[in-house]
Design a protein around this nucleic acid. Structure first.
Length: 586
RNA sequence: GCGCCUGUAGCUCAGUUGGAUAGAGUACCAGUUUCCGAAACUGGGGGUCACAGGUUCGAUUCCUGUCAGGCGCGCCA
């Protein structure tokens, strides 16, 4: 619709220039907006205001010229010039009503567009370390990443959702060591658990599984385990060195193969947990990409050799550094530690190169905002490897702060006191959790009110939208109970009877939906979709309260049934993108 | 200290990429069910868009500075 109006203005502009009514200036692309105020018609263009300066003419005068040259068209009822020079378009009633048939014929495809057809998008999100179960901090990324993916899919992209599994590296060693120490405790060894170890309850569970699997075969004397190690932090030492030394001893005492068994047991158990949680949260992936695979197939090593050959690595203090400052980063970064191990960053360059391998149109990373400082170095890595780093879009998600009973819920990874995602889903339900997570701009700090999300009241936007859908279902149940039925053909031929303000508003809202989806997708802003759904639900509830659908006048009744069917369809489509159910009864 | 993000109604947040009189929800006040689900609807008050400059026909939006808050600044991931 916008496009059609845009074309009209474009034609008028060109004609006016040819006729000499407007001077020859570079013509901007006409901008068309929905009006905020109904008295301004349906759409408005500020083209005359934009042209005022270059043409050195009064904007109202320019507007008058454009309107006078505007080609005749069947979709426009009238054109006005208003305010400082806005051109307001009012569409014909026919045009507005057509949307109902469009929605019903396109059904679940209504709202989709083809902007991304033939293009692929690689979206990576969550990618939490498999060192513990997902907590609510990951929930927002999961909801946001999956909704952004669905939006891209709705506008035509072929979307590849990916979870990067950090199954290598020091943190995983710390997990393996933690598991083994808990196992030793269970075997009766006296262990002082390290400050920097993973202290969660799940570590005990994995240790118990280990004991059930191998019995006491992996038991070693605590004296040997704690031999030759740096002092832990509580005793005034370095907790980092302490845990690394414990890991070294674990590897030595267990041997490569047994250590690997402990390591993999932890990894597998936690990864299974994460997968189950995400599935229950309605978040699915095309791929789970293993960091370890990059090391095992030599991709990381190859990349380092390439960078060395390109002379962007140098050796200092026994480590290999990447000259990321050459590419806009604040400081150079280590890729190979002095102990010979590659860093997470080294893997991540290799991983991002892998993402670029099939040359997707979009490469998107969804990260917690605390990782924002990491962006320049990843882009630097890509640039140094000859890739176009601008193609990588990193979307940052701020943490949500949970409130219950008006009180902030304190969370810290240090104390291990964080609310698990699965507990949140258990408490408020998957629908409310997903909706709440995405209903605020992602780059915004967000207060997550658990009481509100849980409440079955009009305060709760999720229920508000779902209730609108359930109400439509209810009308159709009522219809059947009265022995009547819906005749879509009769409804559509009588759609012109829908002249009430509420009906006009609803039809306008329905016609906006594809624009909303497109805009939400292109800007990675799911919250405008949730806002739209709340608005649509409000328009529907108002209408429902003001007018009856099942009435004596058969033709009008059928027209109204047809309208609310279309509303129902759009709610289903919109909630579907968010991953929220549209229940028939509440 | 440096970098990124944020500051809009008592509270939680939108604000269509610079447009017309800055909007919702909530809270508060006042109303609406012999009728398809009241988990709903209608109306009302409530603002120095953090502050100060600048850019222009026009600024909540763009630029600069100040103040306030969050995050980051590791041979962790």
């Amino acid at each position: 619709m916008k496009q059609a109006l845009q074309d009209l203005i474009q034609q008028a502009l060109e004609a006016a220039v040819v006729a000499g009514d407007l001077p020859e200036v570079s013509l901007p692309v006409p901008q068309i907006d929905r009006t905020k105020d109904k008295s301004h018609g349906d759409f408005a263009s500020n083209i005359a205001l934009m042209l005022a300066k270059p043409t050195k003419m009064n904007p109202r005068e320019v507007a008058a010229i454009i309107v006078a040259t505007l080609p005749a068209d069947s979709i426009v009822e009238k054109v006005d010039i208003a305010g400082p020079g806005f051109i307001n378009f009012t569409l014909t009633a026919d045009m507005a009503q057509q949307v109902v048939s469009t929605v019903l014929s396109q059904a679940e495809a209504y709202g989709n567009s083809d902007m991304g057809v033939g293009k692929t998008a690689n979206v990576e999100f969550v990618s939490a370390n498999p060192t513990g179960p997902l907590h609510v901090g990951h929930g927002r990324g999961a909801a946001y990443g999956s909704v952004v993916s669905s939006l891209l899919s709705a506008v035509g992209y072929q979307v590849h959702r990916e979870y990067y599994v950090n199954d290598a590296g020091r943190q995983m060693d710390i997990l393996a060591t933690s598991v083994w120490l808990r196992y030793l405790e269970a075997c009766g060894e006296k262990v002082t658990f390290p400050r920097n170890g993973y202290k969660g309850a799940y570590v005990f569970d994995i240790a118990a599984t280990l004991q059930a699997t191998v019995g006491n075969d992996f038991q070693r004397s605590a004296v040997n385990v704690f031999a030759d190690i740096a002092v832990d932090e509580p005793a005034g030492g370095d907790k980092e060195k302490h845990i690394d030394d414990l890991t070294r001893n674990a590897k030595a005492l267990l041997g490569e193969e047994n250590y690997r068994q402990v390591f993999d047991l932890g990894l597998t158990a936690i990864l299974a947990d994460i997968k189950a949680d995400l599935e229950a949260f309605g978040t699915e992936y095309e791929a789970w990409f293993s960091e370890r695979s990059l090391m095992e197939n030599g991709a990381v090593e190859q990349e380092i050799e390439r960078l060395k050959a390109a002379d962007v690595l140098y050796e200092k203090d026994g480590a290999w550094w990447f000259r990321s400052t050459n590419y806009g980063d604040e400081k150079d970064r280590v890729v190979v530690r002095d102990n010979g191990q590659t860093t997470y960053f080294a893997s991540d360059i290799a991983y991002h190169l892998h993402k670029f391998h099939d040359n997707p149109e979009l490469v998107i990373d969804v990260w917690g905002s605390d990782h924002h400082g990491y962006i320049p170095r990843v882009k630097a890595g890509l640039t140094a490897s000859g890739k176009n780093a601008d193609k990588l879009t990193v979307l940052l998600v701020q943490f949500a702060v949970l409130y219950r009973g008006g009180e902030k819920i304190a969370m810290s990874t240090r104390s291990g006191e964080f609310v698990m995602l699965r507990d949140l889903v258990k408490e408020i339900g998957r629908d409310a959790a997903r909706f709440f997570y995405v209903m605020r701009s992602a780059d915004q700090h967000m207060d997550f009110d658990l009481d509100l999300a849980k409440s079955q009241s009009n305060d709760n936007p999720v229920y508000y939208v779902q209730y609108a859908h359930a109400r439509v279902c209810s009308v159709f149940r009522q219809l059947a109970e009265r022995g009547l039925s819906w005749d879509q053909a009769v409804g559509e031929t009588n759609i012109g009877l829908l002249t009430e303000d509420h009906e006009q508003s609803l039809m306008t809202a329905l016609s906006r939906y594809p624009e909303v989806v497109l805009s939400a997708a292109m800007n990675y802003t799911p919250h405008i979709l949730t806002n739209y759904l709340v608005d649509l639900a409000r328009d529907f509830h108002s209408y429902y309260n003001a007018h009856h659908v099942i009435i004596e006048d058969i033709n009008l009744s059928q027209a109204r049934l047809t309208l609310i069917r279309a509303v129902q369809q759009v709610i289903i489509n919109g909630l579907g993108i968010i991953g929220v159910n549209a229940p028939e009864t509440m």
